[in-house]
């Protein structure tokens, strides 16, 4: 099956390879729908814990909402990113990527983005509902969603590095979070900073610019590291 696919994509320009990956990704993602919903359930569950565990009063919740939502996004992304490349290593796709003659950089970048589309994006789109439940000020929904739209791909790209480094290890899960969470601190700071500024009625363009620069920086640099780590994992396994 995989050999057949490799023969198909060999010696072709980049685009057909990307569409193949895209189709393969969506197919496997929708074959296992439960896995698609799991990060979302986790996201809601984490946010449920705060009113119960800390304080259900609207004052507390509305003040804490940006941070809570951002942290929940971070944690649920970590959960789904841990196994980003695991299936690809097991079913041999990674080896095909290496030999298909296309730069691994683009394939890794593309794969991460597609993965974000069906794990990160739903969480971002879901966040206004949770924001409503957390008494988040109505006028700032667009800013919250914008910050998450820019921030969660950065988290996915950083998480991709962790997933690539631990792809051939048995103890992947918590290790990825341990390696990657410290690196996501700038995104968290600027993301929540942007939302908080908007709530306070202060211009937030500075934070938006910083977040956007982080986004482009991650977009260009993270796949380099992930690709290097994946190449090494495949060659050594």
């Amino acid at each position: 099956m995989t050999d057949h696919r490799a023969n198909q994509v060999n010696d072709k320009p980049l685009l057909p390879v990307l569409t193949t990956i895209f189709k393969h990704e969506l197919m496997t993602a929708f074959q296992n729908r439960q896995q698609l919903v799991n990060p979302l359930i986790f996201f809601v569950l984490v946010l449920l814990l705060f009113p119960l565990g800390v304080d259900p009063s609207p004052q507390f919740l509305s003040a804490a909402a940006p941070g809570l939502i951002w942290v929940a996004v971070l944690l649920s992304s970590m959960l789904s990113l841990g196994t980003l490349f695991k299936d690809d290593l097991q079913d041999g796709s990674l080896e095909q990527w290496l030999v298909c003659g296309q730069p691994l950089y683009f394939l890794v970048l593309f794969k991460t983005i597609v993965h974000w589309l069906y794990t990160g994006l739903p969480i971002v789109l879901f966040s206004p509902l949770l924001a409503l439940m957390l008494h988040f000020p109505m006028d700032n929904y667009s800013v919250l969603v914008l910050s998450l739209l820019l921030g969660s791909p950065v988290i996915a790209l950083l998480g991709g590095i962790g997933a690539a480094l631990t792809v051939s290890l048995r103890s992947g899960g918590i290790l990825v979070s341990l390696l990657i969470l410290p690196l996501t601190i700038p995104v968290l700071i600027f993301g929540t900073g942007m939302v908080l500024a908007s709530i306070d009625g202060v211009p937030f363009m500075g934070q938006l610019a910083l977040l956007a620069s982080l986004f482009f920086l991650a977009l260009t640099l993270c796949p380099l590291a992930s690709a290097a780590a994946l190449k090494m994992s495949v060659l050594n396994s």
Binding site: I161, L165, T166, S168, L169, S171, L175, L179, A225, A228, A229, M232, S233, N236, S237
Partner: peptide, 15 residues
Amino acid sequence: AIEYSDMREKSTAIL
């Protein structure tokens, strides 16, 4: 988490 190998060296270096 990784046993001693070429892979451990490279993983560490990348990280």
